[in-house]
């Protein structure tokens, strides 16, 4: 439990607090902006996040399929398989 608390504090410091404060900093707007640049830059940033997440998920699935295949020498039978119930 203590570990989880520590982890939460670290995550909050690294990500949550900076992003929330960034969002509240938007009060100083009302200046001339290049609408096209702002919107496309947002799109690119979010696409970076989307592709990184997609890559990690796809990579994890490929690794799982490879690691837990039946023919893997490191594969261990499940308790059910050991007992011959399956």
């Amino acid at each position: 439990m203590v570990k989880i608390l520590h982890l939460s504090i670290i995550m909050a410091t690294l990500f949550l607090i900076p992003t929330v404060s960034l969002a509240f900093a938007a009060e100083s707007a009302g200046e001339y902006i290049d609408r096209k640049a702002e919107i496309w830059n947002l799109f690119f940033r979010l696409m970076v996040v989307a592709f990184v997440v997609g890559g990690v998920i796809a990579g994890t699935m490929v690794w799982q399929v490879w690691r837990f295949r039946e023919s893997n020498p490191k594969a261990k039978p499940t308790p059910y398989e050991e007992k011959g119930e399956l």
Binding site: T19, A23, A26, G30, V53
Partner: peptide, 20 residues
């Protein structure tokens, strides 16, 4: 959670900026 907050905060920030 961190990624969702980041995505939401960025989008909200730009939304505010272009609507003001």
């Amino acid at each position: 959670i961190a990624l969702l907050v980041y995505v939401g905060a960025e989008a909200w920030n730009i939304e505010n900026l272009i609507e003001h």
